[in-house]
Design a protein around this nucleic acid. Structure first.
Lengths: 340, 340
DNA sequence: ACCTGCAATGTAAGCGCTTACATCATAACT
DNA sequence: AGTTATGATGTAAGCGCTTACATTGCAGGT
């Protein structure tokens, strides 16, 4: 069928240059082990044939790829995009290449991709969140591929990780909300089943309610997908309740922006009629009117540090630890005390 | 140094299961060519050893990777993120895996990554924009790796591509601006040297001016980086001119949002005191106040169709063509006639 | 002239997999 | 029982590269 013209090989170059394959290989990998003259001959042969080394073959020979894989839920989420960009920049600085795949928040796809990355010879893996089948961790261990979890910090897990405490941070935010006098709150969250960050955040809200003597059982929660429209729709639904909430706590900024947009559409004043909060502090948060009270997450910093640590693990120069970054509440216009 | 424990190989599995490597291989790739009993034995050996095939070796044996590479300028740009997500979903549907790398808008890094992708055996490549060293195209041809250019349409190039005409679309937008009565316009653009989309868009503005009898030479242009703050700063600078513009045309939505934000900070009314327009129609565009007049680009559609076409090229089932998608002007609140 | 030592180069094994081909066992025929 | 077709399995070559080890050539010592 597809007549794949064979690409030139080391051998072709060697023949063209009139030397052995070993010399060509050395020329490419350790140029100073070779005479200037030979080097030139070889290099011009390389250019003439437009030779490009076969990565698979090289990997097989040396068993090292200098490649790190990252599997994120989706590239459409700005927080991952930004963190990954920083991650890649740091990797590059150390001579590593980044390969990215996205799982669409599906555990089965994620697993498939983890296996794919490993079989492609990734030296290390960046994963998002702790929640996954333990078998996968065993698999990674057997294959001797170090993995690092980011965007989530959980000291009960032993995996190396670098992230913030979703639960604690959301609790801090919820406490502010309660402090302001809100009693009837509601939540718009991402799906909690497949996303430990989302569920931890909701837990944080419950924690705050508990310690304020409020009953978490009465907290309305809507789970929905990650999009502005979904947030808007959920907001609509929440506000239609017989006794509508005075504050809507959203699991992330995108949902919160949707909520604010819908409030506008309903003719409600934010924060006069209803307060709205987010999580992540993406650019959107300071663009909306009113600006979003949210939790600031140091995405780029997290990306950079994840890269350093993962490289350390790969090169066995450091042992994995669970590092917690601070994610702090940013009070802005969208949160105010409820109407008396 | 790093004592890489060897991962189990096909051979190990074969020994463990008491069969030959060929049987194991068949078991994994063509399960129905093997007795149910053997299959079970083999599979349990696979599980027991947590075996994972070595991708490099497989590639070398079959010379096919089912992998498509995409090299984008940055993941931090929502338009690429969204398009790529769609691209990946479509690839997956056809059994292909996507590998992403980002070049930070640097031609040298991009070239390096193209080579890296090719040497990793990518069956095809998705590239952004036409502008690059012709040597690279020759390289891709020699290596017999099909490439498709997206996010840009230019019928003068012969490369297969799928995108919209940046110049034409921006021209249409600029015409609207002029139609409204604006005469003093200014531009905030991304760097034009390394980014043909950016420069084509500016050309479009000039086209519109020309056909309206305006002198493009008088058009102030600030080139800056892709960020809200950069847009804000550039806006500041433009408005400080002795005769400030009545309309600021931005090369993309992010810059435009920065401009609007800065207008707010300067106490200027948009569109009363100054109109602002964007390009891309990302989510931000409808969130800002006032909503952004911009050019809508069908990012997801572009991603999906790029995937189909690239697969077609890889499998030699179709020949490359240059497809133009429509990108149409969306008139919203940020554009109005200038004050009389 | 001869040896020594070293740098440059060549030779060939082996990395883990697929697959054409050879072999073998079994069932279905005479 | 003897033959044959058929399907399951085994054997081994080869994919393109790196690298340990062998070989060669040459400068500098005697």
């Amino acid at each position: 069928m597809s007549v794949k013209r064979k690409a030139p090989t080391l051998n072709d170059v060697a023949r063209q240059a009139g030397v052995s394959t070993a010399t060509v290989s050395r020329c490419l990998n350790f140029p100073d082990q070779v005479t200037a003259k030979t080097r030139e001959t070889v290099m011009s042969a390389v250019r003439k044939l437009a030779y490009s080394p076969n990565f698979g073959a090289r990997v097989m020979a040396v068993n090292r790829t200098n490649t790190i894989g990252a599997i994120i839920p989706t590239m459409e989420n700005a927080i991952f995009a930004r963190g990954l960009q920083a991650f890649q920049e740091e990797l590059r600085r150390h001579g590593y290449t980044l390969l990215v795949a996205s799982s669409s928040y599906r555990a089965d796809i994620e697993e498939e991709q983890i296996r794919s990355m490993v079989s492609r010879g990734a030296d290390g893996l960046l994963l998002i969140g702790h929640e996954r089948d333990p078998a996968i961790y065993r698999f990674l261990e057997t294959q001797d591929v170090p993995a690092l979890v980011a965007w989530s910090h959980d000291c009960t897990k032993s995996l190396p990780s670098i992230g913030f405490d979703n639960r604690k941070s959301m609790r801090a935010l919820a406490e502010k909300v309660i402090e302001m006098g809100h009693r009837r709150m509601a939540v718009i969250s991402a799906a909690m089943k497949t996303n430990d960050r989302a569920s931890l955040r909701v837990h944080g809200i419950r924690d705050a309610m508990n310690s304020a003597g409020l009953d978490p059982a009465e907290l309305p929660i809507i789970e929905t997908t990650y999009s502005i429209d979904a947030g808007a729709q959920a907001f609509d639904q929440l506000l239609a309740a017989p006794v509508p909430p005075t504050a809507v706590i959203c699991g992330n900024d995108v949902l919160a922006v949707g909520a604010i947009k819908q409030a506008r559409a309903l003719g409600l004043d934010v924060p006069g009629d209803v307060s709205v909060t987010g999580f992540d502090d993406i650019e959107l948060a300071t663009i909306v009117e009113p600006a979003l009270t949210t939790v600031h997450v140091p995405h780029r910093d997290m990306g950079t540090r994840s890269a350093s640590m993962l490289i350390g693990l790969v090169e066995k120069k450091c042992i994995g630890e669970a590092i917690e970054l601070e994610a702090d509440v940013r009070l802005r216009g969208s949160l105010a005390p409820p109407r008396a």
